[in-house]
Amino acid sequence: MSESKKVFSDAKSALDGLLSDGMTILAGGFGLCGIPEHMIVAIRESGVQNLTVASNNCGIDDFGLGLLLQTKQIKKMISSYVGENKLFEEQFLNGDLELEFNPQGTLAERCRAGGAGIPAFYTKTGVGTVIADGKETRDFDGEIYLMERALTGDLAIVTAWKGDKAGNLVFRKTARNFNAPMATAGKVCIVEVEQLMEVGEIEPDQIHLPGIYVDRIFEGQNFEKRIERRTIRET
């Protein structure tokens, strides 16, 4: 059992030796829900530059991936929906930031395929739109499909609720989102968890993502878990 080799004390030590300028990072989360907030701060502090980041969104001005926009560490985003932050718009319109839009399901499937050893797949999503420009299409049974390439990253940074020292993960509610498929598609995957457990403490049948995909794991202290649109009912 190599469990102890995976466990690190914090984000900085877990990222040690893995960051380099120009690398591609897959970052889990949807909006601000289930984002690897500790690792984003540690990446900011590392000063690494020219990052390509695949993430469904790009945080807000002062939280999540928005923190890496402030320091201009991101060269390119691969996302389905952005612009919840002014910095993004400003840097994009200035030409300081490249942007590749992927339909949300295509982004998720590109990661899933990347982690599953499938180099490309065909989908109806985006046929007849600008997303199809320059991409191969093919007729299957009388319907046109678009070929999309798999996506992998040098590093995947994801968040889970519970994880054991062997890297087996349990997610919580809608914080699972892109964390599971992206964890499989990084050459190296680091996970920050709210609760680090001993091996055996999680029922094997209840594990959402097997530890085989996880290279490093640490327990994050004091998750902020900011809410983007707090919406309540009165009664």
Partner: peptide
């Protein structure tokens, strides 16, 4: 105008 993205709309209408 600033384009925010298609989110999941393209997948939904296709599927």
């Amino acid at each position: 105008k600033m384009v925010k993205g298609m989110g999941g709309a393209m997948d939904l209408v296709a599927g």
